[in-house]
Simulated assay, not measured.
Amino acid sequence: MNSMVDTGVVAGPASGRTRRTHRFRGLAATGLIATLAAMVATTLAAALAQAVGVDFEIPDGGETIPLPGFAVVTGFFSVVGIVIAGALLRWSARPAQRFVWTAVSLTVVSLVPPLLSGADTATVTALIGLHLVAATVMIPTLARSLRTRTD
């Protein structure tokens, strides 16, 4: 005797994996847009600082930081922030909260090199300000993205 019971359940795509992929893609897209915004903001702020007389000369070697250098360094470390956010999204129960703590801590640590550089006060102040500009763009944007993408 052959009998077939229809339970009404239909197999679909692995929703957990699809949802996670969507969350990562959304975080990456938001992060890359924020990275571009941070790069533009820091470069414009550096140009403004130069316009008012900040020379961005670092005494060790006497080199001056070029404007494109601000965009490159901001872009690199912003992508590092996106990777950290992605890791926390994957492995943390509270990714937004942990990301904010991690990112703020790393921002504070990033303020030390300008203070130790031996540059003049205007350059040190401008460099610290530029670190804070990038953090102000990236940290809230990624934290908000992590909050809206959690289950």
Rank of each mutant, 00 (worst) to 15 (best):
M1T: 12
M1E: 11
N2T: 12
N2G: 02
S3C: 03
S3I: 13
M4D: 11
M4R: 09
M4I: 15
V5L: 12
D6H: 13
V9E: 14
V9W: 04
V10L: 13
A11D: 09
A11K: 06
P13F: 04
G16V: 08
G16Y: 00
G16P: 03
T18P: 02
R20M: 14
H22Q: 13
F24H: 15
G26E: 11
G26D: 13
T30D: 04
I33V: 15
T35C: 07
T35Y: 01
A37S: 14
T43Y: 03
L44P: 09
L44F: 12
L44E: 12
A46R: 12
A47N: 09
L48P: 03
L48K: 00
Q50K: 15
V52A: 01
V52P: 00
V52W: 09
V52C: 00
G53W: 02
V54E: 06
D55S: 13
D55M: 03
D55R: 15
I58C: 02
I58P: 06
I58N: 04
I58T: 11
P59I: 13
D60Q: 15
E63W: 08
T64K: 13
T64E: 11
P66K: 08
P66V: 10
P68L: 08
P68F: 04
G69M: 11
F70S: 08
A71E: 03
V72A: 15
V73M: 13
T74L: 07
F76Q: 06
I82P: 04
V83W: 03
A85M: 11
A87W: 11
L88F: 13
W91T: 11
S92V: 01
A93F: 04
R94A: 12
P95A: 08
P95R: 04
Q97F: 05
R98K: 05
F99S: 09
F99I: 05
V100C: 00
W101T: 14
W101P: 01
A103N: 09
A103M: 09
A103W: 05
L106H: 06
T107N: 00
T107Y: 00
V108R: 00
L111V: 08
L115E: 02
A119N: 05
A122V: 07
A122W: 10
V124T: 15
T125S: 14
A126E: 08
L127T: 11
L127H: 07
G129V: 03
L130S: 05
H131M: 07
V133I: 14
I139K: 00
I139V: 15
L142I: 10
L142H: 10
A143G: 02
R147I: 02
T148A: 12
T148R: 15
R149P: 00
R149C: 00
T150W: 01
D151R: 12
D151M: 00
